[in-house]
Design a protein around this nucleic acid. Sequence first.
DNA 1: AGGCACATGTAAAAGGTTACATGATTGG
DNA 2: CCAATCATGTAACCTTTTACATGTGCCT
Lengths: 183, 183
Amino acid sequence: MALKNAILAALLEGESSGYDLAKGFDSSVANFWVATPQQLYKELDKLEADGLIEARVVEQERRPNKRVFRLTPRGGQALATFTEGTPRPTAIRDELLVMVQALDAGNAAAVRHAIDERSTLARGKLHRYERIRDVLLDGRDEDTYFERSDRIGPYLTLLRGIAFEHENIRWCTLALRILDQRS
Amino acid sequence: MALKNAILAALLEGESSGYDLAKGFDSSVANFWVATPQQLYKELDKLEADGLIEARVVEQERRPNKRVFRLTPRGGQALATFTEGTPRPTAIRDELLVMVQALDAGNAAAVRHAIDERSTLARGKLHRYERIRDVLLDGRDEDTYFERSDRIGPYLTLLRGIAFEHENIRWCTLALRILDQRS
DNA sequence: AGGCACATGTAAAAGGTTACATGATTGG
DNA sequence: CCAATCATGTAACCTTTTACATGTGCCT
């Protein structure tokens, strides 16, 4: 019910194919929504059938053809209506934290390893987000950006993602230190 | 598949009923897992059938009877085995951030209001988490706690929750300021 | 009198994950 | 030559959400 809105919001950035979205949901939008290619292809078909997006087939040489989607006026309207609703509280589901909760009754070395890997992952994401930020800012500083740009939404969500990964890294570092002290 | 582990981990704190867990999943464990009462009752039945937890009926006067669950040795074993696996990357799904992403094409006043409500919610959660922290610390400082306690898992996950809500509040404050500057 | 807390469930519908399926091109 | 990238999908299964269902006691 809300993957729909995530896709419509992603298409505000411009038209893209299912494949592009699958990659996009892996980078900047992944901040606040995750989706597999299978989900996306299915939902795109549905949105097209409902007239909220429309497809254009791009024929390519040496590459499979692709269907490129863009918002229709009705799609834009649907998205605007969505912004007037009440968002449901966030559903967080993090298996790593379940493992940490069970740490004292489980395998501390294995959990330590999982935290270490999460830390690496977070560093990678942070790095990618910060590159996207540089592209958005395009040399301007943040205040200037906020005054001049007419697309502040994506920048604000990106900031949330950056802060999240920062906190992830801080927490992983602390947890690793504590675990090492105790072993 | 992993609500199971969240329940087992929650039962490490001691026995509790479905109703207790439903409340618990609303406070401290809600950090990293959300579940409705319906999910919990169903999963508890299944865990009992699988012999990972066992129930004890507590007869009450003036109150409906309740079934109180505790981990069995096999349940503890299952949890320990779980801590040795690889956690899947976190699935975040936040409708508020989808709204913010669509901000520039939607109703800015409505989104502003939604951010404001999220901010209030985050303050409430932070406050509750910090009370739980006080209970866990029981007057000791953090370093002492980490040295002395043999249950550091719940404290570490709680710290993650506190940091998360802190960041939420910071971000909401920033977003509100930017929105107000522009209107 | 009305609403909340206690206490537990069933059933249908929606949403998400995993496995399977295909096939060309590019880079190391 | 092998792996990754481009590009799209189907089908089965599992998980989650939502609506419905019931009944007592306590507090204001």
